[in-house]
Simulated assay, not measured.
Amino acid sequence: MLFQRSQLMEGMTVRSSDGEKLGRVFAMGDDAFHIEKGLFFPKDYLVRYADISDIRDGEIILMHGRDSLRSFSSEDKYGTSAGLGTSTAATDLRASADTTGAWGNARRTEETTIPLHKEELDVTKREVQTGEVRVHKDVVEEVKTVSVPVRRERVRVERRDVNPDRPAMNASFQDETVVVPVRAEEVDVSKRAVVDEEVVIRKDSFEEERRVAESLRHEEVEIRNSDDADDKRTLNLGPDDPTLRRR
Rank of each mutant, 00 (worst) to 15 (best):
M28H: 02
G85I: 01
D30L: 09
G101S: 11
R15D: 06
R24E: 13
H34C: 09
L84P: 00
D67T: 12
I52P: 01
V47D: 01
E36Y: 06
K43N: 07
N105T: 07
H34F: 09
L46E: 10
F72K: 02
S17T: 06
A102L: 12
E36P: 00
K37S: 01
D57F: 09
G101P: 01
D98L: 11
G79V: 12
L84S: 03
T86I: 14
K21Q: 10
E59L: 12
D31S: 12
I55F: 10
V47Q: 02
T91V: 06
M28E: 04
K37C: 00
S74N: 06
G101Q: 06
A50H: 15
R94P: 02
G23F: 01
G83M: 04
G85H: 07
L46P: 00
N105V: 05
K37L: 03
G101K: 03
F33H: 00
G104C: 05
D98I: 13
G85M: 07
H34V: 13
V14A: 03
F72E: 08
T86R: 13
L93E: 04
A27V: 02
A82L: 14
T13R: 12
L84D: 00
Y78P: 03
V14R: 03
E59A: 12
F72A: 11
G85P: 00
S81H: 11
D76Q: 10
S53M: 10
G11N: 05
K43Y: 08
